[in-house]
């Protein structure tokens, strides 16, 4: 996949959360925790993103195991690839930023 684009912060944290299976509320909690409370995913935004990511097949919904009606999702191979590309892109951004600011 040679596509090169920037993910939104919400998409990035959702994909990152779904390296392991998680349900919606779990994604919200992990995102808040990882970002030290800076990024809070609102429920409507998350719901829309989960549907869009499922359509793109970057994530899949897992078969429901218990009767809690809570849907669990997980990253697909394709989703993992997108996430790895994004981490590399972000590293480039951060490296360049640090390099240039250090020279100042």
């Amino acid at each position: 996949m040679a596509e090169s684009f920037a993910l939104t912060e919400a998409t990035y944290y959702i994909l990152l959360s779904l390296v392991k299976p998680r349900h919606g509320y779990g994604i919200m909690q992990l995102t808040e925790e990882l970002s030290g409370g800076r990024v809070r995913l609102a429920a409507g935004t998350l719901y829309g993103a989960l549907n869009a990511l499922s359509t793109k097949r970057w994530i899949i919904q897992l078969p429901m195991v218990d009767e809690s009606r809570r849907k669990e999702y997980r990253l697909t191979e394709k989703g993992l690839q997108v996430l790895q590309n994004e981490v590399a892109r972000l590293r480039e951004l951060a490296d360049n930023g640090e390099k240039i600011l250090r020279e100042e």
Binding site: L41, A42, A43
Partner: peptide, 10 residues
């Protein structure tokens, strides 16, 4: 806190 949307896109 309670919000339905947390970014400009949504």
């Amino acid at each position: 806190p309670f919000d339905l949307f947390s970014d400009i896109d949504s």
